[in-house]
Design a protein around this nucleic acid. Structure first.
Length: 423
RNA sequence: GGAGAGAUGGCAGAGCGGUUGAAUGCACUGGUCUUGAAAACCAGCAAGGGUUAAUAGCCCUUCCAGGGUUCGAAUCCCUGUCUCUCCGCCA
């Protein structure tokens, strides 16, 4: 959520910035609602003040043993007027709040302007394409031939966009998780957490999935829970409604969870293989930091995610998302894209974002600034470190040989009990 | 799932329907004392919002959440959520 104060006073400026990411803010309607709110709020508070004063004088008169009939008649209609005013105000505040919750974050000034992913800007590359003097297969063909990926049975059990991993592929998948968690905890200073996979609506609102993106989520409606689309939701909400002391910052969490996405609206997109599944696993990095440290934290967090790709020896590039491709809550996002030989292109494997105080304001996540002594909103960041399913297929494709075998990167071999090739 | 108890400031913990936004302790901040620290003593210290140029005043809201009773609710009533104890079930 944007700062309501700031929005009110810089309405046109904000509207212009939001337009760069394709969001139209109806400034006239907002300004009018805001004016109404102001009038009603002043009126309501004046009535409340009057009630408080009269009630207090009744109490005092009674204590002195005086007659209170006169004051009581004065107050007779006050209750009804106040109630009416309060209800009107509540209604308009709810309306404004709903609007506020649906306004995306303002892109940071360093974010390149653009309309779609076409306009994203590559900022660096690492590594090289693996040399292959044969036509590379995709992970579906490799995994199916090995009888270690089974899409058909998963359809029987559930539906499309699910998969069954078996044997050495399942183990490789598990090895990747362990490797990522160990790297981030031992080398990057993150604290490992294990969190609920079902969350309530407040948590979803806190990180920005609700109210606007309900159709992207799976829900357990009879309990009012949602399946998490990313560990970002439960992990970031750890600090919801908290005031952290300065010594408690930064908080750096790493968390492995399954992620559940309905993929509404992506019909026909990436239908083959494990690129886009309803259920996939991810190791997520989440940071809560002092506001003056968040931009540096974004660079560090991105580097932490990159470390995984580097240790795995996977060729990748880093891009800055342009204004039009930016996610709802993010002020700036770097995507890591890994090379996929079968598609002869780079595909997203991590997304690292600074949300500034956008999520923190929704969550009331604060820290006590020792300079002012007052609670202030903190900044939140997160990034995949990495998406495990996509990393798995990147390893399968980049480390395949002409016989359809998969060679295991050195760093993973200890997690594979010494296995160096899957065949 | 059944029975009972509870939910108050960063934490612990009082609180008669009427200056209670809330005693007290801890923590924290400032000061005195001290070579320094500790201790002791003194003082300060909830959050959110409105108005405003203002981090000045003034005002409003908030004692789990949502309703209700009342001129007035932390205090009374109803509903929900959560926590704890016991029983049942269970990885």
């Amino acid at each position: 959520m944007l700062d309501p104060h700031y929005l009110r006073n810089h309405l046109n400026e904000v509207a212009k910035a939001l337009k760069s990411r394709g969001f139209e803010l109806d400034t006239d309607a907002f300004a009018q609602l805001e004016e109404e709110r102001k009038k009603l709020q002043i009126e309501t508070q004046a009535l409340q003040q009057e009630r408080n004063e009269k009630s207090r004088s009744i109490g005092q008169a009674k204590a002195r043993g005086e007659n209170i009939d006169e004051i009581l008649t004065e107050v007779a209609t006050l209750g009804d007027r106040l109630k009416e005013s309060e209800q009107k105000l509540a209604k308009i505040q709810a309306k404004l709040n709903d609007i506020m919750l649906r306004i995306p974050n303002i892109p940071h000034e360093s974010v390149p302007f653009g309309e779609s992913e076409e306009d994203n800007v590559e900022i660096r590359r690492w590594g090289e394409k693996p040399p292959m003097d044969f036509e590379p297969q995709d992970h579906v063909d490799i995994g199916t031939a090995l009888k270690m990926l089974d899409f058909e049975t998963a359809v029987k059990i559930t539906s499309s966009r699910f998969v069954i991993m078996k044997d050495q592929i399942a183990k490789l998948h598990r090895a990747l998780i362990q490797f990522m968690l160990n790297t981030h905890t031992s080398e990057h200073g993150y604290t490992e957490v294990n969190v609920p996979y079902l969350v309530n609506a407040e948590s979803m609102q806190g990180t920005g999935q609700l109210p606007k993106f309900e159709e992207d989520l799976f829900a357990v409606r009879e309990h009012g829970f949602y399946l998490i689309p990313t560990a970002e939701v439960p992990v970031t909400n750890i600090v919801r409604n908290e005031i952290l002391e300065v010594g408690d910052l930064p908080r750096k969490y790493v968390c492995h969870t399954p992620c559940f996405r309905s993929e509404a609206g992506s019909y026909g997109k990436d239908t083959r293989g494990m690129i886009r599944q309803h259920q996939f696993e991810k190791v997520e990095l989440v940071q809560m930091v002092r506001p003056d440290e968040s931009w540096q934290a974004l660079e560090e967090l991105t580097a932490h995610a990159e470390t995984i790709l580097q240790k795995l020896g996977l060729h990748y590039r880093v891009i800055t998302l342009c204004t039009g491709d930016l996610g709802f809550s993010a002020a700036k996002t770097y995507d890591l894209e890994v090379w996929l030989p079968s598609q002869k292109t780079f595909r997203e494997i991590s997304s690292c974002s600074n949300f500034l105080d956008f999520q923190a304001r929704r969550m009331k996540a604060r820290w006590r600034n020792p300079e002012t002594g007052k609670p202030e909103l903190l900044h939140t960041l997160n990034g995949s470190g990495l998406a495990v399913g996509r990393t798995l297929l990147a390893v399968m494709e980049n480390y395949q040989d002409e016989k359809g075998r998969i060679h295991i990167p050195k760093v993973l071999q200890p997690y594979m009990e010494g296995t160096d090739v899957i065949d």
